[in-house]
Design a protein around this nucleic acid. Structure first.
Lengths: 199, 199, 199, 199
DNA sequence: ACGTAAGCGAGACGGTACGTCAGGTCTTAGG
DNA sequence: CCTAAGACCTGACGTACCGTCTCGCTTACGT
């Protein structure tokens, strides 16, 4: 009666009144792969559950919102993948960081995760909240530190940190959302403008 | 729940082997209203058809993709709503234009249309193509002209037009996608950075 | 992924804005077989849809309630399966009819359908309504006619028709619900009591 | 939504290798109330566990089947609620007993328990067994005694006890299952037929 | 003048996914 | 040894959309 996907797959059982790390891993892995393979539109909790041999309610228990799931996926991926540079100048730092980031986005499906999260935020209030309240502050912290270091050096005005940071984020989003993160020629010039000292 | 536009509306009939302008109008109006009321996630072709008293195949015949529908909606809306300023300086021009644009986005549901189109582009290749190939060039043309005028004045380098334009677009998308187009305090400083002459 | 029952089954398509008789037939057949095989507890709309190669919404469109589906199944089955006897006496008529009915219930899974409908009526107000308002009046009409004929003959009082009919129904339900319709020895005596003239 | 009985209830702990009477009581009380409030369809072991502050496995250990739980509930309720009458005639006895029983069913949610048990018996073999082997013999014993007393008086034939008893049970089930135990006008006539001496 | 071709509304169709609830099973912690 | 607690997988629920398809109608156009 029960149609096991892989007849030989040893059905994962409960390990008692505790979360099963196996299940958690299987879910995240399946979600990441699915997002990589089929993108935002092909992503569904049903399919994640199927691939992970997990129950839908289990997934919903941990990640009440798709956004939570996307964040969890991205949190795992980004870990220490993009180093924080120190070139001596803000423009150089931004350039190095952005190049690393884009290289990372190209190599891993992480970029798609960000796109998915942004798209999801257009559809769900909860996702928007998670994006603004949790994802953005955490993920842009390294870049913010670059700006703050520059401000400490007197390179830029302290009041402009937020504005310049948003310019940097916006530029990255634009290129990411239009699937245009391969061409890096314009990057140095762009970063110079973002980092330009006030005249 | 279903808001029949005219509960007693005499069913619209074919007018022969030509597109019915009535239907075309009803569809676009319904789509715009629906997007305004319920946003991207609440938007569905089914509901548009219901509200417009139209058949689904009719809608699909004209707009094979949701993106096409979004573009058609936005095309109608933006018409001559944002004037092209001429303040003498690029920074001033950008500030004036951006303020007008945000005011327009706040007043009309047009901003939601842009968000919807961007989100849809993450889900559909066709939508991405429409966004890059048609929507962006058309809609950003006025701003591009501001940059080109500034380049003609010698304010900025001609090679940097594209870069600066993308910075401007990215910033606007970022604020729009994070539902943060109310606070305008930082706008002047931001526009100054985008317009800053190369040192 | 979707486990098509018959991988080669040509997917049934819409035939326009009308119900497809093919689909209707497939659904009823699948439902009947499922109920026969697995009984009330094993019955699910999902499984019916799977077996019938039909969409769940299609089933719900026609049969908003499980009770409606059960009634439709039973309506098909009972057609002319139980003849109306005429033995000359009420007791004889009832005996003949009841024996035919039980034989029918034993041969076909129709008895299970009745059980399912009664059980469903305990769970859903709508099902109870359908049972009382539609199923019972229709299905017991032949027996009611037996009583009315007897009343016309003067065998029983006209005011007692309803009471005696309920005794007959109740007895049948009791045996059916306790899965005890094989033993017919007591039937003649029971029918004699139900048909006994008032003293 | 979930009505925690005591939101701040100090969670009950194990009292060692013995059944906790507190828990047993809490489970039965919760089950009875739940059945009374929401009927058969609204009844779930999950909800019972929630209300009783108990673990689901605990409930399943004591009552492996829903039917067992229903029986336990009804066993508690019926205790000495319906007296055994002695009017001198079988018809009178049956009438008095049935009236008392219906009054009891109307006043207490006990009737719903019977319905639930019957419905459950259509879904589960175990429940059917419990219904036939345990519930029916126990619960109909008082009525059977009425018939046996009448047989001893010579009012009815001893061989007809079973048949007449089933008529009585069937009639009661029919009215109970169709939620029709308010109208008592027809009761005397019905009981007279069940009790009619053979002619 | 009239047949044909196209546009149109309606809505049924097979699917997929949604988010939730219930059913039972399992393991650990603890008395 | 037994209880309590809760996580786990399964599967069903009823609904919303998707994009396709067929109908029956109406009108304009080409012959």
């Amino acid at each position: 009666m029960t149609a096991l996907q892989f007849p030989t797959a040893p059905r994962r059982r409960s390990i008692g009144a505790r979360r099963s790390p196996d299940t958690e891993r299987a879910v995240l892995t399946a979600a990441r792969q699915l997002l990589a393979e089929r993108g935002y539109s092909g992503f569904s909790v049903d399919e994640v559950a199927r691939r992970a041999n997990a129950g839908k309610p289990t997934i919903y228990r941990w990640y009440p919102t798709k956004a939570d799931l996307f964040i969890a996926i991205y949190a795992e991926e980004k870990t220490a993948a993009v180093p924080t540079p120190d070139t001596g100048s803000l423009s150089g730092d931004l350039l190095a960081y952005t190049q690393s980031l884009w290289r990372f986005w190209r190599a891993h499906p992480a970029g798609r995760t960000v796109c998915a999260l942004i798209a999801e935020a257009q559809a769900s209030e909860a996702a928007l909240g998670a994006l603004r309240g949790k994802f953005l502050p955490e993920r842009t912290l390294p870049v913010r530190l670059l700006f703050e270091r520059a401000a400490a050096r007197g390179e830029i005005a302290r009041e402009e940190i937020e504005t310049r940071l948003q310019l940097w984020i916006g530029f990255n989003w634009f290129r990411l959302l239009t699937a245009d993160i391969d061409a890096e020629e314009a990057l140095p010039a762009t970063m110079r403008i973002i980092a330009a000292p006030h005249t």
